[in-house]
């Protein structure tokens, strides 16, 4: 079923009340992500990208509209979705393997199965020899790989990724991007990737959605027609990349005032 919709936002609006002022974070957003598709969401700071992630993972309910995962209306946290943030959120008192097992442990997966999944994920992500280490003994890039392993361990159909690599250095980021791309491809996962990095959006995704400034709306949708989604390092050398990045820069109004560097 290639056209099966895994993740869908239908006309989602989110308003926050802060004291007397009301703030509309996102307005009338509709997104549909098909099975196995990787879609990036890009937009200026504070346009409500992370709000969409919270709605998708069931942590907050939208003011209007609804979200669906695997055809089911999102009423709260559910097993179909897992998220990963810029912060690795590793528990310092747990070893790498124990951190990877955190989600499956809460979900009540039997211990033997938990260990099996952790072992195979740690091997895939080249972390096997560190499974007994504590987070403080790892580099930032390794910690983020552990976070990815923890996200994958619960075997979600949809991954929500909120700037997962923005805190690691540029070279590590490229390596992590390739690992993510290969992992998503191999496991056939569907993903919504929130990022500030235009090149990351273009090289990792099948489609890029552009959001406007607050209140956030989807103002453009760019299908990325470059082959080899599982190899972003190769993909970034493709001649078409510059054109896509250029279009994104135009849509985001980069180069004009107030668009960059705003606090989150």
């Amino acid at each position: 079923m290639p056209d099966l919709i895994r993740l869908e936002y239908r006309n989602v609006t989110m308003r926050f009340t802060q004291g007397a002022s009301r703030l509309t974070a996102v307005e009338g957003v509709s997104i549909a992500v098909r099975d196995g598709e990787v879609v990036s969401l890009i937009g200026p700071s504070g346009c409500g990208k992370s709000t969409l992630l919270n709605i998708g993972s069931g942590l907050t309910a939208p003011s209007e509209g609804e979200a669906f995962v695997d055809g089911e209306r999102v009423e709260g946290p559910n097993e179909h979705v897992a998220f990963m943030l810029q912060k690795d959120l590793l528990l310092p008192w747990r070893t790498v393997a124990e951190n990877v097992m955190f989600g499956v442990e809460i979900q009540g997966v039997p211990a033997a199965e938990r260990r099996r999944r952790a072992k195979s994920l740690l091997e895939t992500l080249k972390l096997a020899e560190f499974s007994g280490h504590y987070p403080h003994q790892l580099s930032g890039g390794m910690r983020q790989r552990v976070a990815l392993a923890r996200t994958l361990a619960v075997d979600p159909t949809v991954l929500l990724l909120d700037e997962p690599f923005s805190a690691v250095d540029a070279q590590t980021r490229m390596v992590l991007q390739r690992e993510l791309a290969q992992t998503l491809q191999r496991a056939g996962k569907t993903a919504l990737l929130i990022t500030h990095d235009l090149l990351e959006a273009v090289t990792l995704s099948d489609r890029v959605l552009v959001m406007s400034r607050r209140p956030g709306r989807i103002i453009d949708e760019i299908p990325i027609e470059i082959p080899g989604r599982d190899d972003p390092l190769k993909r970034r050398l493709h001649p078409k990349v510059a054109g896509y990045v250029n279009r994104l820069m135009e849509r985001l109004d980069i180069g004009h005032l107030e668009t960059t560097g705003a606090p989150v």
């Binding site: 946290p77 097993e79 912060k87 955190f102």
Partner: peptide, 19 residues
């Protein structure tokens, strides 16, 4: 965010406390 992470895995209140 740690609490949210646990909640996203459908942790119960007692699990959030003890874990």
């Amino acid at each position: 965010d740690l609490i949210n992470l646990a909640r996203a895995f459908k942790a119960k209140r007692a699990q959030i406390f003890w874990r």
